[in-house]
Amino acid sequence: MLIITCPFCGPRDEVEFACGGEAHIARPLADHKISDADFADYLFMRDNPKGLFLERWRHSAGCRRWFNVARDTVSNEIVEIYPMGSLPVKTAAKTTYKTSWRRDTAAEKAATPSRSKAGGSK
């Protein structure tokens, strides 16, 4: 059983949490016309790495708030827990974020038009 440290409530058993799957999937904006195949990247295609994985969790039987977790899918080691809307800071988790195929998809580019102006930082 995993012990997950909720950023708001502290360490709790995994039964109190719900896993929301892959983190950092941004919805393409409606006014950006992308193809069905590109939209499928957003809607259905999932990163499914053997190793470090960035995912969302919710403390559903506690404070009911969402947060991000960087967890190894082989050892179950939790490398980092960080707030929604932000990116990981630990090197390994940062690399996982940057090297995901999702960063190059048209869907993601269509999700945050302002990102390109800001030079990719957030």
């Binding site: 295609m45 999932r46 499914n48 790495p49 053997k50 899918t73 195929w101």
Partner: peptide, 15 residues
């Protein structure tokens, strides 16, 4: 997904 990644293919699969 691991083998698909070797060929640069994306799958909708969660293991």
């Amino acid at each position: 997904s691991v083998v698909a990644a070797m060929a640069g293919i994306r799958l909708p699969i969660a293991s």
